[in-house]
Design a protein around this nucleic acid. Structure first.
Lengths: 122, 122
DNA sequence: TCCTCATGTGAACATGTGTTCATATGTTAT
DNA sequence: ATAACATATGAACACATGTTCACATGAGGA
């Protein structure tokens, strides 16, 4: 079962060759993996999760978000830019006030799915 | 609409009071947010996503994973410990070989949901 | 027992990340 | 135009994170 003769230019020796080949064929493109990681990374911060949870119920302006999440306006703004760049939130401007809301319904799916995972694993 | 008289012991001034109050009531417990962030953070790394994608098709041993993901055995082992601690993967030992597999079906849900998000936003 | 092999792990290092501070931008009211 | 205000942003800082390296552990074979 273990095969040590096979290694495509890397020093790894213990291999279930067939399983490895199968797994290699099922690999996703590097770019897809990278983008998924970026998305998960964006959701992997308490402040940003709080922002998303707050926007769940509808749009909010920056200073409202700061009040709800209880961090500085600057911190919120930085995080919103990040979420914006990943198309997780969108915004519209009304005078000097910027109203943010969730951009993509997948975001809520991810949020809910993770919440369920957390609630079920105690 | 804008109210500057209300601020519960923080200096934020511009507030749509009712919206903020509503959002505050809907806040999740700090601990839940923290755990969700931990979970997303765990998924927010290319190496770990590759591990999860590889385990998608069934269990694999550590050196197989190293071969598929193409990083060192040590790096894989460190990442597996992290995933193990978050109950995202489990393992069984057969002699000196450790076989890892996905622990929780929510993990795959999250993975697929994110993949869909990435594929749809180009 | 001694050796080899598969895996685990601590320390160290470079890099990435979130917040704060100061300041810039752009809007509205006076 | 000036002042007040909402938001954006660059720099800097402290801290977290992923990998590598060296070595430990523990199982099986000679």
């Amino acid at each position: 079962m273990i095969n040590k003769d096979f290694d495509d230019n890397c020093e790894i020796n213990c291999i279930h060759e067939d399983e490895v080949e199968k797994a290699k064929r099922n690999r996703l493109p590097e770019e897809v993996i990278y983008q998924m990681a970026e998305t998960f990374k964006a959701l992997g911060d308490p402040t940003r999760l709080k922002i998303i949870n707050a926007l769940n119920q509808g749009e909010l302006c920056v200073c409202d978000l700061a009040a709800v999440v209880e961090v500085s306006q600057s911190a919120i703004s930085h995080q919103l830019r990040l979420l914006r760049n990943l198309r997780l939130v969108k915004f519209r401007k009304e005078g000097k006030v910027a109203y943010y809301s969730l951009d993509d319904f997948h975001v809520l799916d991810l949020f809910r799915c993770c919440l369920e995972h957390v609630n079920h694993s105690e």
